[in-house]
Nucleic acid binder design. Structure first.
Lengths: 203, 203
DNA sequence: ACCGGCGCCTGACAACTGTCATGGCCGAGC
DNA sequence: GCTCGGCCATGACAGTTGTCAGGCGCCGGT
């Protein structure tokens, strides 16, 4: 019997180990590598000969989306299955654009994970149907690059003056971008706009 | 050989299942119950006869701290081991006050989890040493109940007027509490104060 | 060459926020 | 009883935000 070679990327060692234990219960899966940083995925995938990479979105080094892009460009025959805590529609969209074959949220039943890995390995797509619907309903990210930049700053609680100096724009311009972002996400303040944008995966 | 009966509480099914698989590798541990909500812990612990409860802090229904308190008061002989994603010093403090016997963050190595369960079962305390040091260095939560209430609202991006109506205070009073909270955490805006307080586990 | 759109900026205004000083009310401790 | 400390409130002030109406320069298309 041919086993599927799996790489695990998650920054939480406990979760990583636990997922490894879970997958090890399946006779046709073999965890051949584990990493805790996004920027170690490609190298580990290459040296271990992984066929499927299970990647968490939230990771230090490079986030799961970037890691996916790197894997797909360096090792096109390797499939990527994103596993994430947050079912943010924007993440799904970006993950698929980056070349992921599947997207699973962490509150799907454990029993389905192995099956998802098999499907992805077989060249199929695996996407959480609820999330797919939300993603469609919500439409694409309406924010421009600049709006996202100022919102990322606003999320940290920075004030306009600080944002302006960080992104090298005038205060007035920053306020204009914030204002238009507030309008687009339907918020009342920039802090709230940053929150909404974040939870939609638009940041 | 006597096995230790373990209950698992985590809202993410995948993580829960994975932890179960991990613990099942140990001959002396047996996962006798799994729940996904904080308010189901006591009942499940009682009916399954669990001896150690492994509880995540972030959960719907009742958070891990509340769940711990409930377990300790309903079933005093049951030990609680908190497992959490976020190593927030304030969480540690509150968990111990609520009666937890141990506190482990999710990026500890998987191999240590089983050992932590055994220690807790034996009546020992298990505490992440790094976190314990941080907790001591930071001191106790300096915020009053009211300050925490307004900060919890501010964290959602609400404006003073909205916070005032939600907590049934005048706008001026809300601003006073926000101002004093801003001073205590060393922030510049209420949004930032809310963030800092949250990441310290003070909210 | 002209036009429209876009990115960046300005200036002005009303609204909101953060700070401070102050005062009334109440329960705890001497 | 008196004072002290919390809690809640008010009013006033300077500073910051959110909004709007523009202006300038730079492309890409016609």
């Amino acid at each position: 019997m041919v086993t599927i070679r799996v790489l695990l990327a998650d920054d939480q060692a406990l979760v990583r180990g636990a997922l490894a234990a879970l997958l090890a219960l399946e006779h046709d899966l073999e965890v051949v590598a584990e990493v805790g940083r996004g920027d170690q995925v490609v190298e580990a995938a290459r040296s271990s000969g992984a066929e499927v990479c299970l990647i968490d979105v939230e990771m230090p080094g490079a986030d799961g989306i970037e890691a996916t892009r790197s894997v797909r460009s360096a090792l096109p025959e390797v499939r990527v299955l994103i596993v994430t805590t947050f079912g943010r529609p924007g993440y799904l969209r970006r993950a698929l654009e980056a070349g992921a074959s599947g997207f699973v949220v962490k509150d799907t039943p454990a029993s389905e994970l192995a099956e998802a890995v098999r499907r992805v390995h077989a060249g199929l797509r695996v996407v959480d149907p609820v999330l797919a619907a939300e993603s469609l309903a919500e439409g694409p990210n309406p924010l421009t690059e600049r709006e996202r930049a100022v919102l990322r700053c606003a999320r940290e609680g920075l004030r306009v003056a600080e944002i302006a100096s960080r992104v090298h724009l005038s205060q007035g311009t920053v306020r204009n971008y914030l204002s238009s972002a507030i309008g687009k996400v339907g918020a009342a303040t920039s802090a709230q706009a940053a929150q909404v944008a974040e939870e939609r995966g638009w940041l």
